[in-house]
Amino acid sequence: MEFLRPGCWEEALAAKAEHPAAVPLAGGTDVMVEINLGHRRPGHLLDLGRIGELSEWEVGEREVRLGACVPYARIVGELGRELPALALASRAVASPQIRNRGGVGGNLGTASPAGDAHPALLAAGAEVEVESVRGARRIPIDEFYTGVKRNALRPDELIKRVHVVRATGPQQFSKVGTRNAMVIAVCSFGLALHPGSRTVRTGIGSAAPTPRRAAEAEAFLAGALAEAGLWESRRAVPPSVAKRFAALAAGACSPIDDVRGTAGHRRHAVGVMARRTFLWAWEAYRNGAEGAA
């Protein structure tokens, strides 16, 4: 095994081009587990820890440019206003120690359906900026997840940052686990109201082979809200609308039974979380809030 320590981004891209099988190492919260447990013996470890720009974020007019290695703890502490769903999800990640090391780049690189960041990114809207020596490209988050623990990265590419749409309305995130802290999601749900475009976006975690949106539920809700003029009136949403939205969100799942939960409970819980997160967000919207409820 060889330990590669690029001092800058260009060196990292060159190293990845030379050793496409090299495993990028950032917070280590996935990769080191696999090494400690003997599940993985890469020929090269590519330490991204010395590339300062990966740990920086910047708020633009429309989006937040979030470095792949900005740890979750900093997202919680520094970006709660701009990225409320992601900040809520970040606070639910594993433990304080992990939140001090892990970042969104790792979640995206691993692309586990249980990664906590995914539903929030799907709900907010995001693009993943990846780069290789051949050039850079931005992959829409909806096209990023291609299978169980598979993503749209090419072998020579590295994740540089994520461009996450700044919140213009309330956002929420919930996750069901069988412990009250330090638990991998049985399933999770992210939701963002986008009052500007009169849309609602969602993200479902750990209830399908990949993180995914509940497209039909989103469309239904956008229609129902528009039809009744609720975006403008900011009146309460009829219970039937929330109920239907929940049912459609549950219907968007294709969960499995595993050691962490049953398919049936996952589907049910996604429905409950969809209803609750929507009602929290709508309540915040009614009260004029722009950030998280």
């Binding site: 330990f3 280590g28 080191m32 587990v33 400690n36 470890l45 330490d47 703890a73 090391r101």
Partner: peptide, 25 residues
Amino acid sequence: QGECGSCTVRLDGVPVCACLIAAGQ
């Protein structure tokens, strides 16, 4: 595997699981 905290140390002041830091890092 970062699930117990018994190896918690501070790295540049920040609490982390030492088991998940590669020595080279």
